[in-house]
Design a protein around this nucleic acid. Structure first.
Length: 291
DNA sequence: ACCGCACCCTGAGCGC
DNA sequence: TGCGCTCAGGGTGCGG
């Protein structure tokens, strides 16, 4: 599931293929709630225009478009942004994967889950957006048009300070993990890195946020930055559907300390990792290392 | 204001 | 072999 590190890795690898390129043609799938801007308007607003920059805010990617517009992209749960010609079995369903010979698996053909296909001039590779569950989003903003989704985001997880966190958690009875997942508090945190950061900080996910101390808030902020920077270095976590734009898998999933390690021994103390549902999400923690 | 929960979606994995 | 069930979760919106 793409969180800040996966979105940032995607941004870095896809930017050279988008920025400075003119969209000659945009193919889309049928209208669905994936399209905050209807496909027809998207095509009308993008075809013939050049992409000027690609930035990231929390888990959103923002492409600046020639003429002053902005294209907002969110990968949701299963969104994949990549170029034509990549080789990754993650782009195929298990049944199709099994039916193919290994040498055939290098070829990706746009399927019914491919919602955007950007084509460019002078033979540059296509850029594709595929999203099986359609929790991802695409929206075209006109010049100067405000975007409520972006404006309500809190401090980017890479920049969050302990003091920000301490301030945001006072008198809050919700679990600290629930607050870390609230994008208005810390933008970019998702289920994996929230669990990992809380482990490093030694704080149990279910602790009421208001009972987390100032020092622990410092540790959580530092841990968030640390796990995310390390994940970006290793290419992100390739759990379930995430794939980098060039088809490569990330490696951070191999460094997980608690996420999806239920009943496995803690690497630090040997006790079994526990799991419980917190705010509709599974939380994982070590009862020995976290208070 | 805050909190918990339902919902959108599809595929994998499991029990029978 | 296949059916039906459960689970995965980012973000939004609603009721209490």
């Amino acid at each position: 599931m793409p969180e800040l590190p996966e979105v940032e890795v995607t941004r870095r690898r896809i930017a050279p293929l988008l920025v400075g390129r003119r969209v000659t043609r945009l193919h889309t799938s049928r209208p669905s709630y994936f399209f905050l801007t209807p496909p027809l308007l998207l095509r009308r607003g993008l075809e013939g225009r050049e992409v000027r920059a690609l930035t990231r805010v929390g888990k959103y990617l923002l492409a600046e478009i020639e003429g002053g517009g902005r294209l907002l992209l969110h990968l949701g749960m299963t969104g994949q942004l990549f170029t034509s010609g990549v080789a990754s079995v993650r782009l195929l369903s298990a049944s199709r994967r099994a039916a193919l010979a290994p040498e055939q698996q290098a070829r990706f053909e746009p399927d019914r889950h491919t919602h955007l296909r950007f084509r460019f001039e002078d033979g540059a590779p296509d850029v594709l957006f595929r999203d099986v569950r359609k929790f991802g989003k695409v929206q075209l903003l006109g010049p100067g048009e405000p975007c409520a989704r972006i404006e309500r985001l809190g401090t980017d997880a890479l920049a969050v300070a302990g003091a920000d966190l301490f301030g945001a958690t006072r008198r809050r009875s919700a679990a600290i993990k629930t607050l870390l997942l609230d994008q208005a508090v810390v933008a970019g945190t998702g289920n994996i890195y929230a669990d990992e950061a809380l482990f490093l900080a030694g704080v149990r996910p279910a602790r009421p946020a208001g009972r987390v101390t100032r020092v622990e808030c410092e540790r959580i902020a530092e841990a968030l930055r640390r796990v995310m920077l390390r994940s970006i270095e290793t290419g992100g976590s390739s759990i379930s559907d995430y794939v980098a734009p060039d088809g490569a898998d990330g490696a951070y999933q191999d460094e997980r300390r608690v996420y999806a390690r239920t009943d496995e021994p803690c690497h630090a103390c040997g006790r079994k990792i526990l799991r419980r549902v917190l705010g509709q999400r599974s939380a994982h923690w070590c009862p020995g290392c976290q208070r």
